[in-house]
Simulated scan of single mutants.
Amino acid sequence: MTTPSLTDLLASLPEFRERLDSIVTETRAFDVFRRIADTYAPTLTVSRTRAPVLKRILDEAMQEGLYADEIDFTPSCRGTGVAVARLGSAPRSPVWSVAHLDNISFLTGPGRKGEYPLTPFCQSRLTPGKRPAVALDLADPARPAHIVASGHIATAERSPGSLEPEHQFVTDCADLPLATRVCFTSTAEWDRTTGMVYGCIDNAACASAQLLAALVVRPYQPNVNILWTDEEEGVVDMGPPTFARAASRLVLRTPLDRMPELVFVSDIQDLDFATDVDVDDPACFGRGAAMEAFTSRTRGTATPPLLLGGMRNLFAEMETIDVRVLEQGRYLNRNDDVAMTMATPNIVHLCCPGAFTHFQGRPRVHVADIVHLAKALACLWMVTHSDDWRANFTR
């Protein structure tokens, strides 16, 4: 059996490289990122907040003439809260690509004189200090995410023996309902001199890359499902049942004969934890997307050796068309991979290098890395949806 390769794909579809380079530009990448990142989507709201943004961008691309047929898009597949785009026409898509779409948030407790204790709906990782924030009304069907109060989140020193420091939302508004969602204030910005992009990067950067890749490959209709999940955020230290919930729900509700054989999961790789990286130096970014063989020191999942070898072969081929996916052996947090392992052991962990994902500092990625990830996903989907390729490299 001959194993399909990227070289074979480029030879059989000579226009594919041109589509890749003309569609996935830095300008388009930032525009897609901005539209997603500047839409607040706290956990449990994705189907009403950011999912409609994805749908509008996909429809606009069709009107632009990037592809002829409307993509089958569902904002909450099987009632799970996971937005799904089906690129192919077959009943089963053996390849899934996953990136979470929710952003971190906090829930208010009883307020007193404009000060509200907060419960994190995330792994907050915050150091002491004050950070601008907004409170959202998410209960109005006509306005999915309406800002009702502005202020700041004040984080105190962690008390001895406490797992989490105390947080408060401080605002002029004195009548916020209990469990009002509070998010950090954020506006997407692109420094065109350095290439650095700032804003709510987690996980708008990888979600954008998936959408950009879809614009490239849609005319070929590969049998791939793209998943943008909700409820990835959660209290990770407590274990898998407290995060990646929507992805888990989708796996549970998917019939066995519709399960994937191969899953790509993309998230931000936090470089601010790396002692050998100066995240204030733009030169530390923009070198390419990344892949890691396992997550959270294997508390998450690990890529099977055979599949890992197949990926390395494809990444080497991508270098010939200036698409870079680096393997650096750096720490990568577990994410929706812990849910996908219930569907298949064949999981590839892709990531976009970034810093301060949970607003410990100013969140940042490089626009070139979003471009590299988008192009890599497009190439990977086109090759791995082949039955012959998967027969050689998956369990």
Rank of each mutant, 00 (worst) to 15 (best):
S22E: 15
R258T: 01
P165N: 05
G288D: 06
H167V: 03
E233I: 11
G239W: 09
A142T: 12
A316K: 13
V32P: 11
A149M: 06
S47L: 07
P14L: 09
C77R: 10
T193V: 13
D237P: 00
V148T: 13
R245A: 04
A302Y: 01
Q328N: 14
T344V: 03
F121T: 08
A85N: 11
F285W: 09
T187M: 04
T194S: 15
C173H: 02
V251L: 03
C122H: 04
R218V: 10
P14C: 06
G354V: 09
D387F: 02
R297P: 00
A139C: 05
G129K: 08
P282D: 08
A174Y: 01
T2A: 07
R334Q: 09
A99V: 06
R56Y: 00
A274F: 03
V95R: 03
P304S: 05
R362Y: 08
V323M: 07
S12A: 11
V182G: 07
H385E: 15
G129E: 13
S89L: 12
E233H: 12
T193G: 15
A68L: 13
L101R: 01
P260W: 01
A343E: 04
R28Q: 13
E115W: 00
S97R: 02
R218W: 02
A246V: 06
L118A: 07
V134R: 10
D21E: 15
S97M: 15
D21W: 07
A339H: 03
P305I: 05
K55H: 14
A11Y: 01
L58D: 01
D237T: 05
G288V: 09
G300W: 02
E115Y: 00
D137C: 11
A289E: 02
L314F: 02
P282M: 06
P305E: 09
Q360Y: 00
C351T: 14
V236T: 12
